[in-house]
Design a binder for these strands. Sequence first.
RNA 1: UUUGUUCAGAG
Length: 336
Amino acid sequence: VLVGNTLITMYSKYRELGDSQLAFKDISRPDLISWNALLQAFVENNRPHQALVFFLKMRDAGIQPDEFSLVSVLTACSSLVSLTTGKEVHGNLIKRGLLPVTFLGSALIDMYAKCGSISDAKLVFNSMLYKDLITWNSIIVGCAQNGHGDEALKLLCLMREGELEPDNFTFASILSGCADIAAVQQGQQLHALILKSRITTDTAVANALITMYTRIGSVKEAEEVFSKLETKNIVSWTAMIGGYAQNGYAREALEIFNKMETLEVKPNGITFVALLTACSHAGLTDQAEELFHAMKNRYGIIPGSEHYACMVDVLGRVGRLDEAEQLIDRMPDGSN
RNA sequence: UUUGUUCAGAG
């Protein structure tokens, strides 16, 4: 059993979910850890629905889920944005007298926040006696992602009044909250605070700064953060391209995309959304068509409805309405 | 041997 359980997890880390399932089947008497390991494998490999199905199967098999199982299934509810299922799970753990401590607590907060019920998230947060860094981060992220950037900032103050030091997760999400409400002053204050700590070099934090600055039109500041950042990832590049696009700098957007290509950084679907909007805002029809073609043929990215929408916009703006219509007819999701 | 939080996306 021990070897089998280890195998389930190992295959899951290597994104071989099928092998994890086989490893589970090969265990003659799977124990609670076996069930938990495969449940978590579904979650980690972006199969939240299968995770829920497996969770029900587990109960049918007479296995009482423990804290590990519940945290995993709550994570699945978060990614499915399934508030009703999440509440059911919460109700069950209340009935069983399980308290929302550490892992369970933050999983609940995260579930409620991701499902848009920030009031429930706060109830859980306030009911918790011991709050660690991740508990705080979970509620701060919840506020930041639900348009309550001001509350996120207040929570940051409260957190620092206690003995807890915010980390890169805290700053990245708060900055992104500031970008959403265009809280310029707070954002700059945070930037100053970050420069004093050694979090400056964190990629996610820098990426959030880039977005914050381009949202308020400070392209120069964003460029400075971007150029100083040594560990650029695809989000950094896409944020900068999108920042240029939103501020009308289509040429610059296309230029750093070329730079990306020469450095052999692989763009993703979101990168192309940013590029196509840059073209559509600037009326660069030919470039847009080239990019749309390249994304399929050179990069093997299947265009989604968001890319088709950009192209329809591009063609529509120059009066090529028939072609726009034909494109819609060829869309994979024509109902969009 | 199994569990929680962050950063980029169009119309």
